[in-house]
Write a protein that binds this DNA or RNA. Structure first.
Length: 203
DNA sequence: AAGTAACT
DNA sequence: GAAA
């Protein structure tokens, strides 16, 4: 399948406006079913401080954080299985991921007013040869990308609803984070805020 | 340090 | 004082 054009930020591919507005709305409806079966929760870092995002997952595995550390778990903290990844979301993966494998986790992060995400690497997966695909929905977010080690120079870009970022190859292990969101810049979510979907092969 | 604060 |  042909892949759409993308900008590059330090090797990360950024597909601006990849998802049409009607599809964004449909995905939000799909996610209502996900969060009904797997409610958003506020994760604790292993250091005892809560994260400012609320999160849940879909797929075979979900990403969780608590005093035991960061890891993938096959159950929601409530003991239930994670719901399936919505088909429309899998379609986006197929458009941009460039791998035969299917994602095993769709992490759903909700950024309300003031929520942010510190600089980190995605390194809890078994195979760093598999890509990470990140989908932005709702309010704009200031996305920052650094180096493969902590503390180097960084570059930032604003992500808007419908943008898709692919981290692969040399960019797969770059540090990245969300500095802040700009509330009220999208009406996709009725009560505002931003949803980020992160698709990953885990095993 | 997937957090927070301080500092420039 | 805001932003990085």
């Amino acid at each position: 399948m042909d892949r759409p054009k993308a900008l590059s930020l330090r090797g990360m591919r950024i597909y601006k406006g990849l998802i049409a507005t009607e599809d964004q709305k449909a995905i939000i409806e799909d996610l209502r079913e996900v969060t009904r079966r797997a409610p958003l929760f506020s994760p604790m870092t292993p250091y005892g401080k809560p994260m400012s995002v609320r999160m849940t997952s879909a797929g075979r595995f979900g990403w969780v954080s608590d005093k035991a550390g960061y890891r993938y778990a096959d159950r929601h903290p409530n003991g239930q299985n994670w719901p399936p990844i919505p088909k429309r979301v899998l379609t986006i993966w197929e458009q941009v991921a460039g791998t035969e494998r299917s994602p095993e986790c769709c992490l759903v992060n909700f950024y309300g007013e003031g929520a942010k995400m510190g600089m980190h690497q995605d390194r809890d997966e078994m195979d760093f040869g598999q890509p990470v695909v990140s989908i932005s929905l709702g309010d704009e977010a200031l996305f920052r990308v650094g180096q493969a080690t902590r503390g180097g120079k960084t570059e930032s870009v604003w992500l808007q609803s419908g943008d898709v970022v692919v981290m692969n190859g040399e960019a797969r292990l770059l540090y990245h984070g969300i500095d802040r969101i700009k509330t009220g810049t999208s009406t996709l979510l009725r009560d505002g805020g931003r949803l980020n979907l992160t698709l990953r092969v885990v095993t």
